[in-house]
Design a binder for these strands. Structure first.
Lengths: 327, 327
DNA sequence: AACGCATACTGACACGTGTAAGTAGTAAAG
DNA sequence: CTTTACTACTTACACGTGTCAGTATGCGTT
């Protein structure tokens, strides 16, 4: 059995006939160092020839900072669209030389300190915001950047807040644009979702003429029917739903009452999940350009890590209405 | 401004009035070392008093192994159910002292070597299987365990293969149990999903009387109608769909043809997504106990890391049919 | 000839940890 | 009184890297 040993930069140095320091300078393209093209090539060839892979642990120990960006996922079920965003974020950050990883699971079953202590990330992203103590502890441990994407406005940049509001705006604009005067907002049943729901509702409020009638709609046809019945009694004709699933519940509730969309009630969702176009009737919804959003998040993270100032998000054409038949 | 320095075990040792080695022995409860209760308490108190957090990088460097379990996600969109599985897996591994992280994004845009090099995980999980070279390189770099959950049968344990097959079995059993003799299988449009679809189809084959009529069904009502039309012409009366979304497409296609489920065509899905119970008619589907599956995966990983043999999966009551109206 | 000054490197240290090997001190056994 | 065994530690090294401070060589200038 062949000896299975890690290949270190010392191996590369030996093979290239130079010192280990030179190897490090070549492979990291350290500025301010002058290396002759000849030895540079020798080092590069030796490294790839041996299949050298620098030890991240050693590098992190030395520099006090890794190239990992950690994203703490919330404990509520992540849907297709968040998964999509994470995928795009991962490729966008990879393009900048950063490694993106996500940690799912609630914060309760494991203190989040355990997590970033085990990774030593360059940046930590979270959907919810941190306590001041947490932020402080992380920065003391060498985490360069801590960002909450949503949550109570603090001194953090809430980068996702704006697109969420815009989502609500577009919903309301579409309904008022098609003649609906009195709007309802179908709020999700799960209280953990309010962190997303509140900014969307705020967007609806801003774009709707009057105050929308907010009602919680469970993902159940019978319960949804009750909500729809009361909306109709109040003269509401257009419903902005928190997302497509809630919108499907509204449609199912309306169907139980013998109502058909969009004639009796217009419904518009968010996310454009696959089930939306397969619904009865096909669901009009609002979709976000996750690729562009992820790219912006990535540049924000990179800028913050390297100390530059982050560009502003031009959210205007990020969110788009997909018109089908339900509204 | 207060000096912001990392608290090391040397700080703890100084404060407790002992050597650094003693601190390490106490905090890691190293077997074979005898520490007096008095000094043990002093060390423990000093550590918590200073808020000591061991550097994962240093520990990883020293031991050559971290307590991180890395899961490589495929590049196709992960749905609710996979997200659920990841969450459960995360909490199950946390209970064993392991930190779970997921890396989304395709393998193409970043060689996977870059990823595990940046993390140095104790184990790597993947849905697809690795090339032999990749496996070898990872083990050379100190990764203890490499597991492919699905894929071509190799020398790896394909832990997810069995539950997937069982899923297909349960679908077919339900349909044959309700009198359907001639079955069809609605295969997903996206070729990247075949890694999940093939074992499920194999399960249907094993449980169905004859060979099911396999047809690809895109997530589009019009295209799905074409498939349904041909199935009906062939005398097929029950459809096992790859998942709930494909099942919804089949239902939408049937509706376009004026057919109603389950009278003209019985349809059964997989996953029990929220949209399933809101469909017309509410979708009968097969659901997996993700919590139990995750727990089994976690114990398998832990067993493999610590060199013990893994327990077998008792898959029997893991998969369950949710009977609604479509079949 | 002396000096400055780039170029092209090398030697040595530090990061924070786990652990093997060693060392006093005490106590029981021979 | 020596030996052995055990307790309760400490000293010292290694893990693999980045980087500061040197050093030797060549070259143009004073």
């Amino acid at each position: 059995m062949p000896e299975l040993r890690r290949i270190t930069s010392a191996d590369v140095a030996r093979r290239a006939g130079v010192s280990r320091a030179t190897v490090s300078y070549v492979l990291n393209a350290t500025p301010g160092q002058s290396i002759s093209p000849a030895t540079r090539d020798r080092v590069l060839e030796a490294a790839s020839g041996l299949g050298y892979a620098p030890s991240a642990a050693a590098r992190t120990l030395r520099t006090g900072r890794s190239d990992v960006v950690l994203c703490l996922l919330p404990d509520w079920p992540i849907g297709n669209e968040v998964g999509n965003l994470l995928g795009n974020l991962s490729t966008a950050l990879a393009r900048e030389g950063l490694t993106f990883v996500a940690h799912p699971g609630s914060r309760e079953d494991r203190p989040i300190a355990e997590i970033w202590k085990a990774i030593t990330p360059a940046a930590v992203l979270s959907f919810t915001d941190f306590s001041d103590g947490e932020t402080e502890a992380m920065q003391a441990a060498g985490v360069a950047l801590v960002v909450a994407l949503l949550g109570r406005a603090g001194r953090h940049a809430l980068e996702l807040e704006l697109p969420q509001q815009l989502t609500g705006r577009r919903q309301a604009e579409h309904l008022t644009g098609t003649g609906h005067r009195s709007l309802g907002y179908a709020y999700p049943d799960d209280p953990r979702l309010r962190i997303f729901a509140d900014p969307r509702l705020a967007g609806v409020r801003a774009a709707a003429g009057g105050e929308p009638v907010v009602r919680t709609v469970p993902l159940d046809p019978v319960a949804a029917a009750v909500a729809v019945d009361r909306w109709c009694a109040e003269g509401v004709t257009g419903i902005c739903a928190y997302n497509d699933e809630v919108a499907l519940a509204v449609l199912a509730g309306a169907r139980r009452l013998g109502l058909t969309a969009p004639r009796d009630l217009a419904v518009i969702g968010v996310d454009d999940i696959p089930a939306a176009r397969l619904a009865v009737p096909p669901l009009t919804t609002v979709t976000t350009d996750q690729g562009a959003l992820a790219a912006h998040l990535a540049t924000t993270v990179v800028a913050a890590i390297s100390g530059r100032s982050a560009p502003l998000l031009s959210a205007a054409d990020l969110v788009r209405v997909v018109i089908r038949e339900s509204a």
